[in-house]
Design a protein around this nucleic acid. Structure first.
Lengths: 190, 190
DNA sequence: TTTTCACTTGACTAAAAGGTCAAGGAAGGA
DNA sequence: TCCTTCCTTGACCTTTTAGTCAAGTGAAAA
């Protein structure tokens, strides 16, 4: 018995065209920025034609918004939801230089788009809120007080340090700044 | 006696065309990003023609690099060089939401360009280094120990918090995160 | 007065970009 | 077997964009 879906004419399983499009668009936007990205590049990468993309997304903008909702946000949840302790959180944060080749996707997209398009602004703002909540939950589960402010502190330092890392490529500095924060926040003043 | 320079045919003092171009380019790149920015917009804003711009800058890229060197960097020096104490430093940092309409120009340009063009990358990296030095000097003059790490901490938190501010537009949160850092860094553990 | 140089004009080019569309293929239900 | 729906093709359109260039202007030096 043959899986019919695997015999699609463009060697892609039908339902996967949209997904492949989102994957490639995410990568392309991540590296080149939304405005700098070229639709032809994405299409070429996926191996499909224009009309096929415009069947799923009515415009480049729609594709961009979908990338935020279905990739950037999903990646954040996949990464932060399973974290069980503050210690583990900082370990994950410290690993960012190894996994995030071009900086923080959310930060990058935000810097570029929030003052250019209000739909992007709204969606990015919402997505950031979810990120903050994910971090806050980790802190609260570990009994940390004042979790909202501390979540903001952690994310702010992380985002800024990651930017500096991408300018200097000094991983040690990046880790040092985060570890310092970890100690400062959770040090007990006797 | 009339100032001859003020009788230029395009109602601009000659020497000022380049400067006006840099001003407008800075603003346009700041809001729209380098790639998203449109040269025609800048020319229209300044009130000159293409050839005039290409007389001073051989390409859009050259204009972009000049904006970094002659505006972004200059603004940083103008802003941070006169600061005389750590206290004053934090006051200036806290005022960012009032002065930086579209985020940190250096951060924004960096996020967009460092992985797209190595000339931008080098220049932005150098410029960031100068920023860090400016902050470090303030700390050292105030007798703060471990000034290099602390400068990085301050800048990282500031940059990240500023990004969050631009997503949420909650100025209080922004100030709170920075004030918290100020206390944490300089609190004496008895 | 003449020459020179820095700067400006504005039309032009070529390429790239996002987006459209009519036609066609595959699969599945009737 | 036929019809409908979903998806794909690839050529085409339109607009935008960075960049070019020959010709011209005015100020200042010679």
């Amino acid at each position: 018995m043959v899986n019919l879906e695997s015999f699609c004419y463009n060697h892609l399983m039908k339902k996967d065209t949209r997904e492949a499009l989102l994957d490639s668009a995410f990568n392309t936007f991540y590296k080149h920025g939304f405005q700098g990205a070229n639709i032809a590049t994405i299409l070429n990468d996926v191996g499909i034609n224009k009309g096929s993309m415009y069947h799923f997304f009515k415009s480049k903008k729609a594709l961009g918004l979908a990338v935020i909702e279905e990739r950037i946000e999903r990646n954040l949840v996949n990464k932060y939801a399973p974290i069980k302790s503050v210690e583990e959180l900082f370990d994950v944060l410290c690993s960012a230089p190894k996994t995030l080749s071009y900086g923080c996707p959310l930060n990058k997209m935000s810097q570029e788009m929030i003052y250019i398009d209000t739909d992007f602004q709204k969606l990015l703002s919402t997505t950031y809120g979810k990120f903050e909540t994910l971090v806050q939950i980790i802190l609260e589960r570990d009994g940390v007080e004042n979790s909202e402010l501390k979540a903001k502190q952690i994310i702010a330092t992380y985002e800024g340090a990651l930017m500096i890392y991408h300018l200097n490529r000094q991983e040690e500095e990046f880790v040092q700044v985060l570890r310092e924060l970890e100690q400062n926040i959770f040090k007990v003043v006797d």
